[in-house]
Design a binder for these strands. Structure first.
Lengths: 109, 109
DNA sequence: TGCTCATATAAGCACAACGTCATACAGCAC
DNA sequence: GTGCTGTATGACGTTGTGCTTATATGAGCA
């Protein structure tokens, strides 16, 4: 599973959001999502671990999870290309609305 | 389907990438992905349409697809929070490595 | 009118994702 | 050792995603 797929799940995003508040034991995350069972959370944590979005460290029987933002740079890089596009065309919609319909596409290139 | 899920598919991301080069008819996209059939591309286009990442306009029998970056702002906003986190802790890993193990988590709050 | 081109939709299948309950395992306390 | 706590894993069912082939729709053209 890649980072984009890992982020596609809203629960996982919410878990990451929680972790921005600092490292937490798995149990805290379980408690934070009462709609889900402990195994479900554990699996989400596994996914996050696998894509490198969290780090685990054992503290007695507890597993302390920490956020790792590094994999987000891939997403950020991808988005970056669109920020550029956006800046260049930031009016694509308005331009399109303003143009008389039926006119040939302002096809850009 | 939400934007995050739409972006989870690599083919869809590649399609968006292509559209940064300017508006294209559906046929061009079909041609750009020889590994997939026309209906497959059509369905991906539908998904992108549904989440607002592309705009369609008819030109004779052709459907011209244009990139719309606006929905990406949701992703950008989400990522933004992590940019902040990142800036604040940009050394989370090093700090953790440097800290004597067995010490209570630098739990932040 | 009927044919062809461009695209979308329907139907069906395979597989992955996500959830559950039950269970295993590891560390601590007694 | 026994038992409790915290977390991960196994097995399984359901749902969703993504693909395919076949077909419908709709615009242009002979």
């Amino acid at each position: 599973m890649d980072v984009f797929t890992a982020l596609a799940d809203p629960t996982r995003r919410a878990m990451l959001d929680l972790l921005t508040g600092g490292a937490r034991p798995a149990g805290d995350l379980v408690a934070a999502f009462p709609a889900l069972t402990q195994p479900a959370i554990s699996r989400h944590l596994r996914v996050l671990r696998e894509v490198g979005l969290v780090d685990v460290r054992a503290q007695a029987q507890r597993r302390i999870y920490t956020l790792r933002t590094e994999p987000l740079s891939e997403v950020d890089a991808w988005l970056g290309r669109y920020r550029d596009y956006w800046a260049r065309h930031l009016d694509a919609i308005e331009a399109h609305l303003a143009a008389p319909p039926g006119q040939g596409a302002h096809d850009d290139r």
